[in-house]
């Protein structure tokens, strides 16, 4: 699988596009509604961080299949000011913009894997992965909407 979707992020409309594209790509892989919402929300958080702190950057979506376990990879990259203290940024409730500061630690909780590399003055790259549950179980309840 070599679907590589590069999405430039420079405005809040791009944040919406990124999470919609992410949802669609993950749906193609067979994720359930609940996981799709988690993935879309996580993308929303990291993409908004780009707009908020760096002004511009990109989100790259791709599918992976390591050892027969398929998943989606989200990379959010910017060349903004970088994060001086990563440990602090990943702590719940920390924010330099007076917000709730749940963006990064929240996104980390929503995904299976989360990795962040940041260099002051150079930029930040967040890589998140979510694996398709091997035997996705769905409860036969009411459909959405």
């Amino acid at each position: 699988m070599s679907d590589d979707l590069r999405l430039p992020i420079k405005s809040d409309a791009d944040v919406v596009t990124a999470r919609q594209q992410g949802r669609e790509l993950a749906a193609r892989l067979g994720f359930g509604e609940c996981e799709l919402t988690l993935i879309a929300t996580a993308i929303s958080e990291v993409a908004r961080n780009i707009v908020e702190y760096a002004g511009r950057g990109e989100v790259v979506l791709s599918l992976t299949d390591v050892n027969n376990s398929p998943g989606i990879i989200v990379v959010a990259r910017d060349e903004g000011p970088g994060i001086p203290n990563l440990e602090l940024a990943l702590r719940d409730g920390y924010s330099t913009h007076g917000s709730l500061g749940l963006g990064l630690p929240g996104a980390r909780r929503l995904m299976d894997e989360f990795e962040i590399v940041s260099e002051v003055g150079k930029g930040t790259t967040v890589t998140m992965k979510k694996w398709l549950p091997r035997h996705t179980m769905r409860f036969p309840l009411s459909p959405r909407r």
Binding site: L102, G106, L110
Partner: peptide
Amino acid sequence: DVAFAMTQLGL
């Protein structure tokens, strides 16, 4: 699903 994601996020 949205409610679930919100609580996972801590919102």
